[in-house]
Design a binder for these strands. Structure first.
Lengths: 212, 212
DNA sequence: TGTAAGTTTGATCAATTGATACTAGAACTT
DNA sequence: AAGTTCTAGTATCAATTGATCAAACTTACA
């Protein structure tokens, strides 16, 4: 009767698949049209489900949106973690480079997260507050402390501290968040080597060259 | 009877003001919620007008959106032109710096344009195609030829050519396009000096230092 | 002032929205 | 096999959407 909670117990073989498909098509729809421009019926149809199943598996359009974002952010975390796994703990430059590379690669592979963030960041509201409180504040703090360390070791380029976060995210992700525009402009489609060149470019923007 | 065209003739004193107010509140609404998430009734109410006046002064929600974008792009052009007016024609570095400064200042003063561009760039469609065909292709080409000149004179930083446009726009505008998010993160509100530091940072990202 | 054009206002249209209620059926446990 | 729980499917709700129409009002010019 009630919405199945995180720990579903018994009959969940096919149900889990519907949940997955709903989240996947919700991610696509929210990224393309924003929350308010997205339709639950379109999301359900794309997932091969009925609109009322959204309210069954999630309790509302809002909760489906939250589930979609938690999925995307978990993917980002795992991508960043695997990119940082092999890097020397004490090498701040290498860790920064690996993080930027991970960010760019993820933005290219999963542009939906940056698209949704750009939709939501454009206006105040409950969803934005939820995003910042539950997910973005920590990421922002992590970047700032990494940046402060780079500044202390004279590895940071001439970029103002207040501006690092959004400049970095913007430089790393707009090409993919706005990929449909880039295609019309004749850029891409983004091959693997373009992404690598892009990551190297972003690193060069924020890190002083080594032998200086 | 028909929608009044650009050259209105007689009774147009108050009408022109309604048109202006509709465009102004449409800009705010489209920037905050995207085209599909925006409501004509909300736009009209904000402008102190009736919903049907949108279809009278513009013939459709789509045409109101186009008028809004032409307004914003005209403002951008005039801001950039005035920023470039006093700069030496032959000094490519100075012209690039002045353009970047103009871009950052405009993004801070009128974040709506970048917000709308980020909404529309996230998915293919008629509006995006109209934007690119009528306004963005030329701007992109202008930046690329400026960049090629900077590359030829060894003034361009180590940024891949395919990536310059979106990296520059992203680095220059995301902080303002997503200002509501930045506020929640404790950045800003953007003072005049922050904008100047931001512009200098972006210039430093894309231009090699002078005496190198 | 009278007439015609321009503009506002209010009503209405079919279509779509998110959510809810209810029935039918499938799957697991005992 | 019986009984229970979970899931799918259908129908429906009030609210909102963009657009259209016609009537009322306003302004300018003859």
């Amino acid at each position: 009767m009630a919405t199945p909670s995180a720990g579903r117990s018994r009959v969940n073989r096919g149900s889990e698949q519907v949940r997955e498909r709903l989240i996947e098509s919700a991610i696509a729809e929210f990224a393309a049209h924003g929350f308010e421009g997205s339709s639950g019926r379109r999301i359900a149809a794309e997932a091969g489900a009925h609109q009322s199943q959204i309210n069954y598996h999630f309790s509302s359009k809002n909760d489906l949106w939250k589930a979609s974002l938690e999925r995307l952010l978990a993917e980002l975390d795992s991508a960043l973690a695997s990119n940082l796994a092999a890097v020397d703990e004490s090498d701040a430059r290498a860790r920064f480079s690996a993080s930027v590379q991970g960010l760019v690669q993820f933005a290219a592979r999963r542009p939906e997260l940056n698209r949704i963030m750009m939709h939501e960041g454009a206006a105040p509201g409950d969803r934005l507050r939820w995003l910042v409180d539950n997910h973005m504040r920590g990421r922002h703090a992590d970047l700032m402390s990494a940046w402060d360390a780079l500044t202390a070791s004279d590895d940071a380029a001439a970029v103002d501290r207040d501006v690092v976060y959004h400049s970095l995210v913007g430089a790393a992700s707009l090409l993919y968040a706005n990929a449909p525009e880039a295609v019309l402009l004749g850029i891409g489609p983004a091959g693997r080597d373009l992404v690598d060149r892009h990551a190297a470019s972003v690193v060069a923007m924020f890190l002083k060259p080594l032998n200086h």
